[in-house]
């Protein structure tokens, strides 16, 4: 690594979150990370809980009984909402990061229209889809 001159001035983790003057995709990026971490944590627990199936009906029923109640219902709804967001935003990211939906390179003429603007309708579309999925799925949890 090159020898560093001067005083370090990296923004640190708060630079991930941005805020203030940053754009829409910056928030999607932060939320994608947060939901990803939450889903991984849930997934590891989920493997543990559902593995009780191997020990037969009683073990399964008691494991399911341990995760019942309004608190778990709300928690499960949050996991489902996180899944809905992470899944549809993931579709957008997979498309965009493989170079689709961002437009072709063009001669930049002011005011510039960037790849971020090109994929904006897609970003808004998938967020609407995520909201619909979270609401439809949520009805099942909150009934």
């Amino acid at each position: 690594m090159i020898e560093n001159k001067g005083r370090p001035n990296r923004l640190g983790v708060k630079g991930w979150l941005g805020g203030g003057r940053w754009g829409f995709e910056r928030y999607l990026y932060a939320l994608h990370r947060l939901t990803g971490l939450a889903l991984l944590a849930y997934f590891v627990l989920h493997i543990g809980v559902t593995s009780s199936r191997a020990f037969g009906e009683n073990a399964w029923t008691s494991a399911m009984g341990a995760v019942k109640g309004p608190l778990f219902s709300v928690g499960e709804f949050l996991v489902f909402a996180a899944f809905a967001f992470h899944a549809v935003n993931g579709i957008r990211l997979a498309l965009v990061e493989l170079g689709f939906a961002i437009g072709q390179p063009i001669e930049p003429v002011y005011p510039y229209r960037t790849s971020v603007d090109e994929q904006r309708p897609l970003a808004i579309g998938v967020m609407i889809l995520a909201a619909i999925l979270a609401i439809v799925g949520g009805i099942g949890f909150l009934k």
Partner: peptide, 23 residues
């Protein structure tokens, strides 16, 4: 990572359909 994401999208979509769209 991206390939796995695509597989998860299909399989987890199925899983969610089974578990939460049972109505």
């Amino acid at each position: 990572h991206i390939g796995a994401g695509a597989v998860i999208l299909v399989l987890l979509g199925l899983h969610m359909t089974v578990m939460h769209l049972d109505a």
